[in-house]
């Protein structure tokens, strides 16, 4: 939590009472590999800041196949934001791919922090903009780039992640088959 507080302090003046409030709506929790933090079909009240390890969010299609939406490593946030925003049941599952430590926040309280502490308003807006930019980039990459280019970008974005993930996690994130991913890796190895 101290690291997150430090990061926040680099971007705004954090009053002691705001810091105290952040502590009051969060707790640091260690999870084991395979633990599910959000399960499809359940209510979502929490959002998670990753301090170590690797998590992923995924949806399951009607045929029972998993499709990875996001990997979250150190310093990333992860939750089912559709469920939180629309007050709906989760359509995503969030699981730990490795033993992981997260700071678990009450999502509603965190979302409303700017009403108590207005200095968080621009901070939250910037965070949201960054998130939108990253999502737009992901969609555009999916539309414009070749599978190999998407894989290269993925490796830049998530260095070292391949140790923790199975092929199908990455293949479904990139929107390609496992066979295609294997082919791309073989081609890269030849270079």
């Amino acid at each position: 939590m101290e690291d997150l507080i430090k990061k926040i302090k680099t971007r705004l003046h954090l009053r002691p009472e705001a810091e105290e409030f952040l502590y009051s709506i969060s707790k640091e929790i260690k999870h084991s590999k395979g633990e599910v933090l959000i399960r499809e079909g359940q209510m979502v009240k929490k959002t998670f800041f990753v301090t170590s390890g690797c998590l992923r969010s995924f949806c399951i299609d009607n045929n029972g196949k998993e499709h990875t939406l996001l990997f979250a490593i150190n310093d990333w946030w992860i939750s089912d934001y559709i469920a939180i925003h629309n007050n709906e049941l989760a359509t995503l599952t969030v699981e730990c791919l490795t033993d992981s430590t997260v700071i678990e926040f009450n999502a509603k309280e965190l979302d409303g922090i700017h009403t108590r502490f207005p200095e968080f308003e621009s901070y939250q807006r910037l965070n949201l903009e960054r998130h939108v930019v990253s999502l737009h980039k992901r969609i555009l990459n999916q539309l414009q780039l070749s599978a190999t280019e998407r894989y290269d970008l993925f490796l830049k974005q998530y260095p070292d992640i391949e140790r923790h993930t199975r092929n199908y996690h990455i293949a479904s994130f990139l929107g390609i088959t496992q066979e295609s991913l294997s082919r791309i890796r073989v081609e890269k190895a030849k270079k």
């Binding site: 995924f58 045929n63 029972g64 196949k65 998993e66 199975r166 199908y168 293949a171 479904s172 496992q178």
Partner: peptide, 9 residues
């Protein structure tokens, strides 16, 4: 749990 990369069928 079933394998995540294949269908129910």
């Amino acid at each position: 749990k079933k394998p995540g990369n294949i269908s129910f069928e």
